[in-house]
Write a protein that binds this DNA or RNA. Structure first.
Lengths: 249, 249
DNA sequence: ACTAATCGTGCATGAACAGGCATTAAAACT
DNA sequence: AGTTTTAATGCCTGTTCATGCACGATTAGT
């Protein structure tokens, strides 16, 4: 295993768990604690993490109570969500995957919209429970800690019985050739189930996710009917998707 | 657990409750009070909190910062939860109903407890997703707006397959003769299912709920093994329950 | 003023650390 | 190809850090 690989792994761990322990890393990566210490020191000197006795932590601690309030690239996501809302009609059955864009969608739903929303995301369910007319159904299952979404067999079984009008699928990466991809295997399988339970699948990526790829495939691009970004629909970046027959907004 | 983690936790706790008690922190974080004292001293020296006898406070009172975290009769519920925690052992399968007392229980779970928790409450699931070692499984279903819990057939079917070690049932009213009762029909049916999936049922009412009654019956008192209130276990109010063979804490 | 809780200090112990040294492997240079 | 350089890693040693415990001093509540 290369040093760079370890560094990437460590950074990923820190991002998702807020901390790492030297002893744990040493065990997982099969190197001595000395090496880990050197890794941590280097990353710390670069300002990428904060070294502490026994391991390292993320620089800025983002407490639980604030974490879900702040949305990365919020402006862009508001633009996207505005374009997405007209897709939802009264009495629709909607499936909403996790992700901050979908959370923003949940927040911006018109208060007079009457619909049933199935979701596997805890923050989205909480948000929707405050909506006066939307009936919220949580798709239960094992909760993935970082993402605060339910995943796994329970989810997959649950949605097998649903035929939704529209599905908003969380999109970590989308590529005109490789489709929607993600990096967590279990999450990917769950997303596959969500995608296949709706006739109309919508992806809402911010433009920086366009034409990036992650290890695991959620779905091919042909299963996605609509793509909405914060860009103008004629933007060059989206040409490939228009050509493949997607509705681009 | 890293020192820095404790510090973050303490700061967050101070911000949300305006104060912390050394004894409480010591329990929750599973370290000696000496260590907590040292933590508080350090944070205090950095000017991040104000140390006082018995714990610490935040420097300036910020009235509405964490309004959503406030729990009615919080003090009493902390007392209850303290007594409840020893009931949960490592590798237990726990079922947690909704309610603010159970939410407090989720918050106070020792960070080194390893367990699987099934819950139908969104806030509790969110809280538990922050816990490092607890595996959280959400029991999906229709979300009841006010209570933010899942109810209905989906929930009932889900728990039919579970055999839990212990179930903490949310208790709106408990009576030595009429048992646990509630006022929402659908929620009541759901609670019945939760109760019947565990060998050990625990009710955590604050004393003002003792011997009150609601329209619908969740379960008779004979199905409840343990009753925990903020009162001393010998309190007269609890005599009737002791006589009926409940463990009263 | 009395009593129990809380505090501060010092000490002991084990974990984590820094820095030097040896080994290996890859890279760069004759 | 053969040699030198450099980087990466593991191991060793003395040092620092974190923590729990003991014990006397201090404080708060009655």
């Amino acid at each position: 295993m290369l040093k760079q690989e370890r560094h990437n792994y460590i950074l990923e761990e820190v991002r998702s768990h807020n901390k790492v322990l030297s002893s744990e890393l040493s065990h997982k990566l099969n190197v001595s604690e000395d090496t880990i210490r050197r890794d941590l020191k280097e990353l710390s000197d670069n300002g990428q993490i904060k070294k502490v006795h026994g391991g390292a932590m993320q620089h800025a601690y983002i407490p639980f109570s604030h974490k879900d309030r702040e949305i990365y690239a919020h402006e862009e996501k508001v633009v996207i969500v505005r374009k997405a809302i007209p897709l939802i009609q009264d009495d629709f059955v909607v499936v909403m995957d996790g992700g901050t864009t979908n959370l923003e969608l949940a927040r911006q739903l018109p208060l007079d919209l009457k619909a049933t929303v199935f979701t596997n995301s805890l923050p989205i369910a909480l948000q929707l429970s405050e909506h006066p007319k939307v009936e919220t159904v949580f798709i239960g299952g094992k909760i993935l800690k970082n993402a605060q979404v339910a995943v796994g067999l329970d989810v997959i079984n649950f949605v097998a019985d649903i035929h939704a009008d529209i599905c908003f699928i969380g999109t970590r990466s989308i590529h005109h050739q490789f489709g929607i991809t993600d990096f967590d295997r279990e999450e990917t399988l769950t997303k596959q189930a969500l995608v296949s339970c709706a006739k109309h699948v919508v992806s809402l990526p911010i433009s920086e996710k366009i034409n990036t790829v992650q290890p695991y495939k959620v779905t091919g691009i042909e299963k996605v009917q609509t793509l909405i970004t914060e860009l103008a629909s004629e933007d060059d970046l989206l040409t490939a998707y228009r050509k493949r027959g997607l509705q681009v907004l």
